[in-house]
């Protein structure tokens, strides 16, 4: 009796050990596959081309050398473009929120009027998200001319893709109980949205908006490169005449502003919690 018990215990341990070994083999396979994919990607992009990298290194070093010391002699000329850039990011984010809000209710499972509209709204959000803002910038520069306006339109429209999606997800995760209560009190569809759903999703929506503003500020610094106004335009001009000391000065100004905007954004989002 006791020996049969021993055997059964032995057999159980054996099973456990085999299962454990199988688990180890599986994770080994997964790690191996990931490493292989990473290596193939590096090979494809030339990151493993030691000779070419070796030749490039001195050039990079030289470029870096030409950047210092930063030349702040024209710093007064950066103030206005930097203000433009901040304005672009704020106006663009506002535009994004204005379009995202109605789209999100159409693209959320629980508030969409019907499946066709749901898929149309989701599709539109995907399209807007997948066209890069730089491409949109080029298109809008062609449409409305140089300046900050095409930048705002490009940032705003591209942002709708992400902001609208996140808004829709927030709406889908809303607590349905207060909605039922509002309906039971005779509220109309619009009243349910405004008085039962919006109060619940306000924190998430504000969080996404502030986060997107931070992102849009960083994105708007390059909008100038396609002629869509802001500090990026100055950056491009200095790059064209290969004045790398000025380029470095502008980059430092941008870095300071990005740090400031991100810090402000973090404070704002902390307040919303």
């Amino acid at each position: 009796m006791s020996s049969s018990e021993m055997r059964s215990v032995d057999r159980n341990f054996g099973d456990l050990l085999r299962a454990e070994a199988q688990g180890t083999r599986r994770s080994g396979l997964i790690v191996g596959a990931v490493v292989l994919i990473v290596l193939l990607s590096m090979l494809d992009t030339g990151l493993l081309d030691a000779q070419r990298l070796g030749e490039g290194l001195p050039a990079m070093w030289q470029l870096a050398g030409e950047m210092v010391p930063p030349d702040f002699s024209r710093v007064g000329d950066y103030v206005r473009p930097l203000i433009d850039t901040v304005a672009m990011s704020i106006a663009g984010t506002a535009l994004a929120v204005a379009f995202s809000l109605p789209l999100a209710f159409l693209a959320a499972n629980n508030t969409t009027p019907n499946r066709a509209i749901y898929h149309a709204a989701r599709g539109l959000l995907n399209v807007l998200r997948s066209v890069p803002e730089l491409i949109m910038g080029i298109v809008f520069v062609a449409a409305v001319g140089f300046g900050t306006l095409p930048g705002v339109l490009a940032l705003g429209l591209h942002s709708v893709g992400m902001v609208g999606k996140f808004f829709a997800e927030a709406i889908e995760h809303v607590d349905p109980k207060p909605i039922e209560a509002a309906r039971a009190a005779g509220a109309t569809g619009l009243q349910v949205i405004h008085r039962a759903i919006l109060p619940q999703v306000m924190p998430q929506m504000s969080d996404v908006t502030v986060y997107r503003w931070e992102y849009n500020f960083r994105a708007s610094t390059v909008m100038g490169m396609v002629g869509a106004g802001g500090i990026g335009f100055e950056l491009m001009s200095s790059l064209r005449i290969m004045n790398y000391q000025e380029v470095f000065a502008i980059l430092l100004c941008i870095l300071a502003c990005v740090t400031l905007v991100d810090a402000l954004g973090a404070v704002l989002r902390g307040r919303l919690k």
Partner: peptide
């Protein structure tokens, strides 16, 4: 429905309030 619901109030098991309000 709207007329009827306006004059027919409901109290729910789980309150169904909005916590943030």
């Amino acid at each position: 429905l709207r007329t009827h619901r306006r004059r027919t109030a409901m109290v729910f098991q789980h309150h169904q309030l909005i916590g943030r309000l």
